[in-house]
Computed example of a mutant assay.
Amino acid sequence: MKKYGMLALIAFFMMSLSISAQDSTPKRGGGNRPQQEMRMTAKERAERMAKQLQLTPEQTAQVEELFKKQDEKRAEQMRKFREERQQMQQQDREKQREEMRALMEQNMKEQDAELEKIIGKEKMEQWKAYREEQMKRAANRRNAPAPRGR
């Protein structure tokens, strides 16, 4: 009887180890999140917008081109900021952050103006509402307490 009890205990222990080893839920902070989930391509973003706002194929193509141009512009700006950052002192970094934030806000306003020309005012309002909702969700996730355990 003791042998069966001990055998069942060992089997239970081994099963619990194998289950915990297979846990693939992302940890807080996205440490094991695949890189492809981190940033969507211009095409994926355009398709998501098209699905959300029922855009025509022509509008979707124009939005995709706009997103590609913006991605290239953003990549160039980030490269420039990284180069400058390596050469800066700590106090200058705060100034650079503020400049970068202002530039990003300016770029977003320009993007919204171009996007509104493509998709129209009504769909742009829908898109802004959707974007605002997503930003609130992200803020809630950032402010949520870290999960316990594990």
Results as ranks from 00 to 15, higher is better:
27 K>G: 11
83 E>Q: 14
139 A>Q: 09
34 P>L: 09
45 R>P: 08
48 R>A: 14
79 R>Q: 11
74 R>Y: 04
119 I>V: 07
120 G>R: 05
148 R>V: 04
60 T>F: 00
127 W>R: 13
94 E>T: 07
104 M>P: 00
9 L>T: 15
125 E>W: 02
137 R>G: 13
13 F>D: 03
68 K>I: 12
113 A>D: 12
85 R>M: 10
63 V>P: 04
88 M>H: 07
20 S>I: 12
62 Q>F: 06
134 Q>V: 03
66 L>Q: 06
94 E>Y: 08
11 A>D: 14
60 T>S: 12
101 R>I: 08
113 A>V: 05
25 T>P: 01
114 E>Y: 01
48 R>G: 10
91 Q>L: 00
2 K>Q: 13
88 M>K: 06
55 L>D: 15
47 E>R: 08
106 Q>L: 07
147 P>K: 02
77 Q>K: 06
33 R>Q: 10
18 S>G: 14
115 L>S: 04
77 Q>V: 00
6 M>A: 14
100 M>E: 13
130 Y>H: 15
28 R>T: 14
8 A>T: 14
46 A>T: 05
31 G>L: 10
98 E>K: 08
54 Q>L: 10
109 K>R: 10
11 A>M: 15
108 M>N: 15
2 K>W: 11
138 A>R: 13
138 A>Y: 08
67 F>W: 00
30 G>P: 00
102 A>C: 02
89 Q>A: 12
7 L>Y: 11
65 E>S: 08
5 G>C: 09
124 M>C: 02
104 M>R: 12
14 M>P: 09
72 E>V: 01
1 M>H: 14
59 Q>C: 05
44 E>W: 02
129 A>K: 13
69 K>H: 05
74 R>E: 09
90 Q>V: 07
33 R>G: 01
141 R>M: 04
75 A>M: 10
49 M>F: 14
113 A>K: 12
103 L>F: 11
12 F>W: 13
135 M>C: 02
82 R>L: 06
94 E>R: 03
76 E>P: 00
5 G>E: 13
127 W>S: 11
38 M>S: 07
146 A>G: 02
148 R>W: 00
35 Q>P: 00
107 N>D: 15
150 R>N: 09
63 V>N: 04
123 K>G: 03
47 E>Y: 04
25 T>I: 05
90 Q>I: 03
7 L>T: 12
34 P>A: 14
104 M>V: 06
88 M>V: 03
75 A>Q: 15
46 A>E: 06
65 E>R: 04
134 Q>N: 00
45 R>W: 01
72 E>S: 05
144 A>H: 08
150 R>G: 04
100 M>F: 12
50 A>P: 02
25 T>Y: 09
62 Q>S: 13
126 Q>P: 02
66 L>R: 01
89 Q>F: 06
135 M>F: 04
6 M>Y: 09
74 R>A: 11
87 Q>Y: 00
96 Q>I: 03
117 K>G: 01
6 M>R: 12
23 D>Y: 04
68 K>Y: 10
28 R>F: 08
137 R>P: 02
18 S>D: 09
139 A>C: 00
40 M>W: 04
55 L>E: 14
28 R>D: 12
49 M>E: 14
4 Y>T: 06
56 T>W: 12
88 M>G: 06
113 A>Y: 07
99 E>T: 06
62 Q>G: 04
87 Q>H: 03
142 R>N: 11
14 M>A: 15
79 R>T: 12
61 A>I: 03
64 E>Q: 14
90 Q>S: 03
150 R>A: 01
43 K>P: 00
